[in-house]
């Protein structure tokens, strides 16, 4: 027991701070509303659209794409419908009625973001992200980053090839992300929780917790629970004496 107490003390000295940080960051993540963090409410459910009765024929689509097609989608984009063709050279968007190639440029990205955004605030900035940061995580680059002028500084990240909204960020997420970084101990990319540092520290802190539980058995004396145990024992004693008294 003395050894366990010594170990608990030294593990506490070395790893206790991380236990405090895990508790605080965990407590803060539990406090921050996960729906707000995910940015779910800031994106509108797309209106149910119906594809044009006679979209571009496959023969004309083939011509417009001009490359071998490995997969195809006919889907809504903005107000119209597009063919999204997967080719060895990447994704190509073709207007499903006119057959014109569509580029997701700055104006298009802004328009798509506005259509997707559930708020009424204006766009604050549109920027092409070429190098990744904590906001873009491991999303394919480049990306369109459209920030809105709402209080939460809601930001939508759109694919430059498909025009899809790939990710949503806001100030609640940005705050949450700091605690997430502390929690997973990935201080640069905030992405991986499977690295040697956290596995090592988690092993040590697991022992800190377990040794603490073992110590609980030694730390409490009967006296600590006297206010509960005394009345119970008194009742038992009374019952015993009554039994003895009742015996013939």
């Amino acid at each position: 027991m003395f050894l366990i107490r010594t170990l608990h003390k030294w593990f506490g000295l070395i790893l206790g701070l991380q236990f405090v940080l895990w508790s605080i960051s965990g407590a803060m993540m539990a406090l921050l509303d996960h729906h707000k963090v995910s940015g779910e409410p800031s994106v509108r459910e797309p209106a149910a659209a119906i594809a044009p009765a006679e979209p571009l024929t496959l023969a004309r689509l083939s011509q417009a794409v001009g490359a071998p097609i490995q997969g195809l989608k006919l889907r809504p984009l903005g107000d119209g419908y597009v063919y999204e063709a997967m080719t060895p050279a990447g994704v190509k968007l073709v207007d499903a009625t006119s057959g014109q190639t569509i580029a997701v440029d700055e104006a298009k990205a802004a328009a798509l973001a506005i259509a997707a955004f559930s708020g009424s605030e204006k766009v604050a900035s549109v920027r092409k992200v070429e190098t990744g940061d904590v906001e873009t995580r491991s999303l394919p680059l480049p990306l369109w980053r459209v920030e809105f002028a709402d209080k939460e500084q809601t930001t939508l990240l759109l694919s430059t090839t498909t025009g899809e909204v790939l990710e949503r960020r806001n100030n609640t997420w940005r705050l949450w992300d700091i605690f997430w970084m502390i929690h997973i101990m990935d201080y640069t990319k905030r992405e991986s929780f499977n690295h040697p540092l956290i596995i090592t520290v988690a092993s040590g802190v697991a022992w800190l917790a377990l040794s603490g539980v073992i110590l609980l058995f030694r730390s409490f004396r009967r006296q600590d629970f006297a206010y509960v145990l005394d009345p119970i024992e008194r009742l038992q004693d009374e019952r015993k004496t009554r039994k003895v008294a009742n015996q013939p």
Binding site: A48, A49, I50, A51, P52, A53, E54, P55, T57, L58, A59, L61, S62, P68, I69, Q70, G71, L72, K73, L74, R75, P76, M86, P88
Partner: peptide, 25 residues
């Protein structure tokens, strides 16, 4: 990913005419 020969395929819009939301090949 392997190329799909589009020649001879049914037109994607003709499967559920007037009621298609999206199609994936």
């Amino acid at each position: 990913p392997a190329p799909i020969a589009l020649g001879g395929l049914v037109e994607p819009g003709s499967l559920i005419p007037g009621g298609t939301r999206s199609v994936k090949l």
